[in-house]
C-alpha cells in the first residue's frame, strides 16, 4: 500500500457547475466537506457519495469521487449493498429531511440498526425545497405551506430522537453556519466504525429562510446552542450561566447554574451503553426556537455489519474450504445411468 497522496480542496472538487440557489446552506456544507477531505487521509477513488432525491441529493455531482445520485429515499439501501460488497470503501450518504425521513424513513432506520459502515449526513431544512415549498416531516405543526394553507396538522420527527430509537451507534448534530463544528462532526462520523448519522441544520433561503436563525445566528449561538462535550457537565450561555439537569423522572431540563450548583448538572456521556441520556437530551428542544444541543449525542462501539458478514464468509471458507461447484452439484443424492 503506497502512501495516500497529499490533496487539496481542488482535487476533491468536480468540474460540474454547482446548481443550488444562491445563498443556500448547502454551499457551506459542500465547502466544509471539500476542505475537510484532504485531512481524512483517504483516497478519492475509495470514496463514494450516494444520495437520493432532493436539493441535498445533488451533492455527489460536485465531489471528484465516485458518486451516485439515485432515487428518492433509497440511498441508505443502495449504500448498504455497496458497503457490504466493498467494505474497504468510504461510503457517504447524503439526503434531506424528506428523502431520509419521509420516503426513505424505513431504509434509514434499518441501515442504522444494522450498523452498516455508512456516514449519513441528513441536511435538515424543515421544508421540501426541490418540489417548491411543501411541509416536510420535520416542519413544525401549524406550518403554512402551499400544501397546508391552513397550517400543517402533522407532528414533526425529531431526527436525533428517531436515530437513537433506531439503535444508531453514532448520532451527532451540527449546523451550516459553523464550518469548524461541521468538520469536527463529519470527521467523527468518518472515524466511527458503523452507521453514523449527522443531522445538519441547513437553511433553505428560498422556502424556509431563517428557520434556524434564532439558534444558529452568530449572536444567538451562545445563548441557544448547547455544545455537548463528552465527560463535561452540560453548560451553555453567554457566560456559561445555564446548564442541563436530569429530573427525577429522567427528563432533561434547562436550569440556571446559579440555582442548582455545578454539581447538579448532568455530565454528558456519549459512550453510555443505554441511549436514555442521549435521548433525553434530544428531547430538550422541540423546535429551533429553544436551547438546542449540538455535538455528539451518542458514540458506541458495536459490531459493524459488513465486517460481520465478511467474517461469516471467511469462517465458511475456513471450515468448508473455498466453494467447489462440482461438489455443490453433487451434494444431493445422485444416481448413475449407464
Amino acid at each position: 500500500m503506497t502512501d495516500v497522496p497529499v490533496t487539496t480542496k481542488k482535487d476533491w472538487t468536480s468540474d460540474q457547475e454547482v446548481r443550488w440557489c444562491p445563498g443556500c446552506g448547502d454551499y457551506s456544507i459542500l465547502t466544509a466537506i471539500q476542505l475537510m477531505m484532504p485531512d481524512l487521509g483517504v483516497r478519492r477513488e475509495n470514496t463514494v457519495f450516494i444520495s437520493g432525491i432532493g436539493c441535498a441529493a445533488r451533492f455527489p455531482y460536485y465531489m471528484n469521487t465516485y458518486g451516485m445520485h439515485s432515487i428518492h429515499g433509497r440511498s441508505p439501501a443502495i449504500a448498504t449493498g455497496l458497503a457490504m460488497a466493498r467494505p474497504e470503501l468510504d461510503v457517504w450518504v447524503i439526503g434531506g429531511d424528506g428523502d431520509m425521513l419521509s420516503i426513505g424513513g424505513n431504509h434509514l432506520i434499518h441501515a442504522l440498526r444494522r450498523n452498516v459502515n455508512l456516514n449519513i449526513l441528513l441536511f435538515n431544512n424543515m421544508i421540501y425545497g426541490l418540489t417548491k415549498g411543501q411541509f416536510s416531516p420535520t416542519s413544525e405543526t401549524g406550518k403554512v405551506t402551499k400544501s397546508t394553507p391552513f397550517g400543517s396538522v402533522d407532528r414533526p420527527f425529531n431526527p436525533v430522537s428517531v436515530a437513537l430509537g433506531a439503535e444508531a451507534t453514532f448520532v451527532a448534530r451540527t449546523h451550516d453556519m459553523d464550518r469548524a463544528h461541521m468538520q469536527a462532526m463529519f470527521k467523527r462520523a468518518h472515524a466511527h466504525q458503523g452507521a453514523s448519522i449527522v443531522e445538519v441544520f441547513q437553511n433553505c433561503n428560498v422556502f424556509n429562510d431563517g428557520a434556524f436563525a434564532s439558534i444558529t445566528k452568530k449572536d444567538n449561538r451562545d445563548a441557544m446552542l448547547i455544545d455537548l462535550q463528552h465527560g463535561e457537565p452540560i453548560r451553555f450561555g453567554v457566560d456559561n450561566e445555564r446548564g442541563v439537569i436530569l429530573d427525577d423522572d429522567g427528563l432533561a431540563r434547562v436550569v440556571d447554574v446559579a440555582d442548582v450548583g455545578v454539581e447538579a448538572l448532568v455530565v454528558h456521556d456519549e459512550t453510555a451503553d443505554d441511549p436514555a441520556l442521549s435521548f433525553a437530551l434530544s428531547r430538550l428542544a422541540s423546535g429551533p426556537d429553544q436551547p438546542t444541543p449540538v455535538g455528539v449525542f451518542r458514540a458506541v462501539e458495536r459490531p459493524e455489519y459488513a465486517q460481520s458478514t465478511s467474517q461469516q464468509l471467511a469462517a465458511a471458507q475456513e471450515s468448508n474450504g473455498p466453494g467447489d461447484l462440482h461438489a455443490l452439484l453433487h451434494s444431493l443424492p445422485t444416481w448413475e445411468v449407464t
Partner: peptide
C-alpha cells in the same frame, strides 16, 4: 425496495 437497492449498490461495486 431495499432488497433491489442493495443489489444495485453491490453491482455498482462490481
Amino acid at each position: 425496495i431495499a432488497a433491489v437497492g442493495a443489489a444495485l449498490g453491490a453491482s455498482y461495486g462490481g
